[in-house]
Amino acid sequence: MSGEVTLTGTLTCTCEEEAVQVRASLPEHIALTRAEAGCISFDVLSTDDPMVWSVSERFVDAAAFEEHQARTAGSDWAARTKGIARAYKIEGM
């Protein structure tokens, strides 16, 4: 039996066009992720820098986290934010 998996870090845009893509697709991405059975919490919050978002995710276990990753891989969010820098730390895997 595996324990909780957490992901923390940042999503950093390099230009306003990338930031527009994040802002446009983020509400649906958050809603779909929070609706996943294994999601404990999921927050992507703007920071003082309009090009940087703080990311914090918690899933009940590795299987739930992996299901989330698989779902998002083919999502509108993934397509619209492809190439945007992510610096994440994953614990519990």
Rank of each mutant, 00 (worst) to 15 (best):
S41H: 03
T72N: 06
A87Q: 14
T8K: 08
A62I: 01
T47V: 12
E57S: 03
A87P: 01
E28N: 10
A79V: 12
S2T: 14
V52K: 09
A64L: 02
L11F: 02
C13I: 07
R23G: 00
M51D: 09
V22T: 05
T47G: 09
A37F: 00
A78S: 15
V52Q: 12
M51P: 07
G92Q: 12
E4W: 02
E36P: 09
D61I: 00
E66I: 03
G38P: 11
D48M: 07
W53F: 14
G9D: 13
I40C: 00
T12V: 12
V5T: 11
G38N: 13
T47W: 11
V52Y: 00
E18I: 00
T72I: 14
V5R: 12
D43W: 00
C15V: 02
A63R: 13
L11M: 15
T14H: 07
I90Y: 01
A63Q: 14
I30N: 05
L45I: 03
D76H: 14
H68D: 09
D49K: 06
G83D: 14
E36V: 01
E91T: 15
L45F: 04
T47Q: 05
T47D: 06
R58L: 05
S54C: 08
S54I: 04
T6W: 01
E17Y: 06
S2A: 10
R71M: 09
R86Q: 13
A19M: 05
T10S: 14
M1I: 06
E17W: 06
T6S: 10
S54Y: 08
A85M: 05
F42K: 03
G3S: 11
A19I: 03
G3A: 03
E91D: 14
T81N: 11
E28T: 11
R34E: 15
M1H: 13
S41L: 03
A73K: 15
T10R: 11
V44Y: 12
A37M: 01
V52S: 05
S41A: 11
E28D: 15
H29Y: 11
K89N: 06
H68R: 09
A78E: 10
K89S: 08
T81W: 06
M1F: 08
I30K: 04
K82C: 00
G83N: 12
L11K: 08
I40Q: 02
H29F: 15
A31N: 12
A19G: 05
V5M: 01
G92A: 06
M1L: 08
R86F: 10
G38K: 13
Q69Y: 02
R58P: 01
